[in-house]
Design a protein around this nucleic acid. Structure first.
Lengths: 337, 337
DNA sequence: AAATATATCCGAAACGTTTCGGAATTTCTC
DNA sequence: GAGAAATTCCGAAACGTTTCGGATATATTT
């Protein structure tokens, strides 16, 4: 493969001049620059990013640490949307992305920080990894610029993007209360998730705001999966037929709840109103279409990338970026009779 | 950041020895190796992959060229599934992935081949890019190991993975014919897509096999989008009420057809049977659930990665890998009355 | 014409590895 | 105990860039 040396030889100049010509420095004659560029094109020269990065001490790549890149992660398109947003912004800024494997066994000996350091990524975006993951903590303790999705950690070199999960959940409860519901249950995710805590907080705040009773035993975990949520909802609804509405901490779980309701012969929304969270693609396609709290996951990715580049260029002190969410009323909620 | 030199100094040996110790060569004393490893751990050494790759002439990374990484690409989870499969295999083999931006404007001056050469990826997997894309052709003409998804190009250094689209389509037609349908239309993708050609071929072969008449004007393009397919199907069904079944070249388009049928007051499957292609997540969640030709997109990604590594390690002459597909009968097809 | 400024170029070091060829020491073989 | 073999180590070059500090030639100023 052609190198800068080859060009230098052909053009009869030094490698210094070639380098400076190709990189647009001003101290090179217009004619020689033309000649060098011409030769570069002819011999199909492409600069070696490795060599360049080695001396420049940055790679123009940002790392991606995501746990949802598994076969079943495809059902909710959240991971994908975020990735797309990141890709969009990074692409426009000339950064490439490298995907690190967190799932597979082989690399499991290497910590995330090690992966980042070896590849010399300029920064890293983390998604779907539990807050107390020891490997993740190692990253905070290192000095790698980092932004988290939906995990609130702040630092000189780390920030996060999220939505206002408390307020989003309150929107859901308000909507349900306005429809006359008072016996409202909640299917939450799991305790290790930050968003679960926040959404529960919003649920409870919303309930007291509306003057409704909170039944702690009506708040159960569905592990963010359709199946677990279905099982949990089945028991819940069977044992407590007075429940008329369920707020779910994710759309996927809401689908599970719909299934449970179906198995119990409950009509939706006639016998049971449901509101989900996320607004995944499935939400609007399923019948009846799911009322949900929509968050713009593409935008979250986009903003995460923006925030990261700001952190690593030190152009901004900001470390957290909140995205709006929005209640989308569809067909799974109706007036309580 | 700690380098191999630092270790050498602390251990009182040469960098050569450190390198060889850390890389498991046999010509280093067990004790010194232990000592070196110990020091490496203490000072948190991580090898600089850039420097290593520079001399080793390979990066242990494979590039990803995908066009579907855009906001609306999320509806069908195909791109994501393939990516997941690739990631799975590459991860298990110690390769990392780098995502190249094909969508965004900034990098558009750089050709794909240039991107690959600059980053010195060991190989590249291409997905969703039209066969006659000039940038893509440049890759075939280069010597970059490459495997395509659903684009049949063979070469010393390029191969592809696909499914038997002809046979898959024939399965769909056979199924429809068995149900007594004879007035079968087809919504195809677009002419630049290899799979469109194949699926059409399968459609036609299936029709003659079953002794059914092909109406060329009943074969229209839906551009692989829901909306275009809906419009096309609307006109088709309105002008030709005798059509009792439609075969769609993608599930997303099948959804559009369902919508068109709904708008025309046609019941599915009572008045119109539909079979899709792909088996995206939506297919099984929509009501009525979509009968479709399922292809294992995760597996396609997995096999693509496997094939690529075989090509670049030159361990195999194989250049094409076909994946099975399967008819999944759900609720959008029924006996013709 | 001397002094100064400007334009254009270059040599060499540096980035952090791997690896070739060989050297020094120890152990084995007969 | 001499030669052969094995063990353990090292120096230096190489990979392909960027960049610092200067050098040379030409143009401008006084």
């Amino acid at each position: 493969m052609a190198t800068i040396k080859d060009i230098a030889k052909l053009a009869g100049v030094s490698v210094t001049t070639v380098s400076r010509a190709l990189n647009g420095y001003s101290d090179v004659n217009a004619d020689t620059r033309k000649r060098i560029e011409q030769i570069a094109k002819e011999i199909e020269y492409s600069p070696n990013a490795l060599a360049r990065s080695l001396v420049m001490k940055h790679t123009k790549t940002i790392g991606l640490l995501v746990s949802g890149l598994s076969r079943d992660g495809a059902k909710d398109n959240i991971v994908f949307d975020v990735l797309t947003g990141i890709n969009e912004y990074c692409g426009s800024m000339g950064y490439d992305l490298v995907l690190f494997n967190t799932t597979t066994s082989k690399q499991k000996e290497k910590t995330y920080a090690q992966l980042c350091r070896e590849r010399r990524v300029d920064g890293v975006i983390v998604q779907g990894i539990k807050k107390d993951d020891p490997y993740l903590i190692e990253i905070f303790d290192s000095n790698i610029p980092c932004v988290l999705i939906d995990v609130p950690v702040e630092n000189e070199h780390t920030g996060y993007v999220s939505t206002d999960n408390v307020d989003g959940s309150m929107k859901a409860i308000r909507h349900l209360a306005e429809l006359g519901h008072s016996n409202i249950a909640m299917i939450n995710g799991h305790d290790q998730a930050y968003v679960s805590k926040e959404r529960r907080k919003g649920f409870e705040l919303g309930m007291v705001e509306e003057g409704l009773d909170i039944h702690p035993e009506w708040i159960v975990n569905g592990e963010f999966t359709e199946l677990k949520a279905e099982e949990a909802a089945y028991q819940l609804l069977k044992n407590n037929p007075e429940i008329t509405a369920i707020f779910c901490a994710s759309d996927l779980m809401a689908l599970g709840v719909m299934r449970a309701a179906f198995d119990l012969g409950k009509k939706i929304p006639g016998d049971l109103s449901i509101v989900g969270y996320d607004d995944i693609t499935l939400a609007s396609y399923v019948t009846p279409a799911l009322t949900t709290i929509a968050q713009d996951t593409f935008r979250m990715g986009y903003e995460a990338a923006d925030l990261l580049l700001k952190i690593l260029h030190q152009t901004d002190e900001k470390r957290v970026q909140l995205i709006d969410n929005e209640l989308k009323v569809r067909k799974t909620t109706t007036r309580c009779n």
